[in-house]
Amino acid sequence: MIVSIEGIDGAGKNTLVTELRNRTGADVLCFPRYDTSPPARLAARALHGDMGDLTDSVHGMATLFALDRYGAREVLDRFRDSTDVIILDRYVASNAAYSAARAQDPSLCDWVADLEFGELGLPVPDLQVLLDTPVDLAASRAESRETADRSRTRDRYERDRGLQERTSAVYRRLAEQSWQGPWLSVEPGDAGEAAAEVESRLRAVRIHGHARQV
């Protein structure tokens, strides 16, 4: 089973992923894989102004993030149609939400799905969890993180308040439309409570045999 945790920058995804890993013992994979993936490293350089006008291309940046995930396809495929669980910190929905928000064009969500699930053959997640954190709170967390750790300098996306607001709105639409499968929206707050909600849904998934049947 593939479970992705989604949300804007500073939403608290890492905290929720860590809580879920501690509670369930599930494997975890975080995207983008900046430490190990050449496409992800190129995207990071672009976001910090080191790749000329590459970051101006919505499709170009989306393709780099997609290729990062394609590089992990062998790992992801092990959890396709499996009762074993892997928890992803961001997945394809992140690319869809940010791309559509950047272009201000909802059709980019379908373009991303065709690229990643179609052309690249990545597995569709069994459950997508939206951590629906208010933009003000998420921005405050991102700023505090940057202040506390010089290695966590905010990139171009993280500094763009308008982009974060538009991305949050796109995420909500994706969840409401059950884009590419079932979604669960959880409110920010206690990570244990949010993790308990996700665990409850996962138990239902196991009972029904497959998330897309829930």
Rank of each mutant, 00 (worst) to 15 (best):
T133S: 14
E158Y: 07
S144G: 13
R161M: 06
T133Q: 03
Q164C: 06
E158Q: 10
P123T: 06
E146F: 04
R166H: 10
L127H: 01
D160Q: 06
P125M: 02
L131D: 02
R145K: 07
R145V: 03
R156C: 05
E158T: 06
A142N: 07
R154G: 04
A139P: 02
E143L: 09
R141W: 11
D149S: 14
L163F: 08
D160S: 14
S168I: 00
R159F: 00
T153C: 10
T167A: 15
A148I: 13
T147D: 12
Q164F: 09
V135R: 09
R141G: 10
R156I: 07
V135G: 04
S144H: 14
V129S: 09
P134R: 04
Q164N: 14
R141P: 01
R156D: 14
A142H: 00
E143Q: 13
P125S: 08
T153D: 12
Y157T: 05
V129C: 03
L127N: 01
G162H: 04
T167S: 12
R156A: 15
Q128Y: 00
T147I: 15
L163V: 05
S144R: 15
D132R: 06
T133F: 08
Y157S: 11
S168C: 01
Y157V: 09
D132C: 08
P134F: 05
T153S: 11
L137H: 06
R166W: 12
S144M: 12
P134D: 01
D132M: 03
T133E: 04
A139F: 09
T153I: 03
P125N: 04
D126V: 07
G162Y: 08
S144T: 09
S168T: 07
S144P: 00
